[in-house]
């Protein structure tokens, strides 16, 4: 097995080739019940069992204001290892501001953000995060490979390992044939995929993606989601923002944000149950109504 693992509590060997890995839970309100089956190879059968709780990324009583205008207020979040956490909200709700603080680029006006137990912003913690901004932050004059080489170097990747990671991540997003092209010639979707590949370059334990699937066709969106889920299973925590409601159901948990407040938080199924709504969209409107 390869990849980054959620801290394993203990391993129970069943037979010669199978084992149960006890790890920290994705969400502590989901108890130990989440048992899943994954075949990593023909001979091995691995079962994850999740136990006690400790968030990888947390925000407590976070507020952020710019020039006297409050963008976010009293945000409390706990993001668990290896879960996909969605931030859902209309544009202008403060999602991007929150992601920037979770990424350690911006500092909260009050409250604190902690990554793996360390208070942000802190320079050395930035390497733990793979960040994909809302705007494709790419150098259009350069080729895709040159862009990747540049960002890989910023994260301290060099030599063979850099070449290898560039190839791996490019394959992941289906761009290996277009690496030599200038980004200028890329379509919107290709740029988005390249940004994702760049965020994955240094194998960060936490991925922060701001609207990762905007402008990407449905087929590709599905393959990106499949990849995010695969990363989850290898222990990577994924935090993403979206305003596409049908994407939200693929998240393990989500927080709904409106006008700088979290109006609801929970599993998609749980949120539907609470409101009795048929879709997440309806649920969002119901929570929004209560907030007024």
């Amino acid at each position: 097995m390869t990849g980054v693992f959620t801290p394993v509590f203990f391993v129970l060997l069943l037979e010669e080739n199978s084992a149960i890995y006890f790890s920290r839970p994705r969400a502590y309100n989901e108890l130990i019940i989440e048992v899943s089956n994954h075949s990593f190879s023909k001979n091995k059968d691995v079962i994850f069992v999740q136990t006690s709780a400790s968030p990888v990324l947390s925000a407590s009583q976070v507020s952020r204001s710019f020039a006297g205008k409050t963008i976010l207020s009293d945000i409390n979040l706990e993001i668990m290892p290896a879960e996909t956490f969605g931030l859902l909200g209309p544009s202008g709700s403060g999602k991007t501001t929150l992601v920037k603080m979770l990424a350690g680029i911006d500092a909260p006006s009050s409250g604190e953000v902690k990554l793996l137990g360390t208070r942000l912003p802190k320079l050395s913690m930035l390497k733990e995060i793979g960040y994909m901004a809302q705007a494709d932050a790419l150098y259009n004059e350069l080729t895709a490979r040159e862009n990747m080489e540049f960002f890989a170097a910023l994260y301290g990747l060099s030599g063979k390992r850099r070449t290898q990671r560039i190839l791996e991540t490019a394959q992941l997003v289906n761009l290996e044939e277009h690496l030599g092209k200038r980004v200028q010639q890329y379509s919107g979707g290709m740029k988005r995929r390249l940004s994702l590949a760049i965020a994955l370059l240094h194998e960060p334990p936490i991925l922060l993606l701001d609207e990762p699937t905007v402008g990407i066709d449905p087929l590709l969106r599905q393959s990106i989601w499949a990849e995010l889920k695969a990363l989850n299973e290898r222990g990577t925590t994924v935090v993403l923002t979206t305003h596409v409601m049908d994407e939200v159901e693929k998240c393990d948990r989500l927080a709904m944000i409106r006008s700088g407040h979290i109006i609801a938080e929970g599993t998609p199924a749980g949120l539907l149950r609470t409101t009795g709504a048929a879709t997440i969209e309806e649920a969002f409107i119901q929570f929004g109504g209560e907030a007024k």
């Binding site: 320079l123 390497k127 932050a137 910023l154 994260y155």
Partner: peptide
Amino acid sequence: TTGTLERLLASPVR
């Protein structure tokens, strides 16, 4: 303006 500065500052660059 293209956001690459923000992207740079999201990396551990000083």
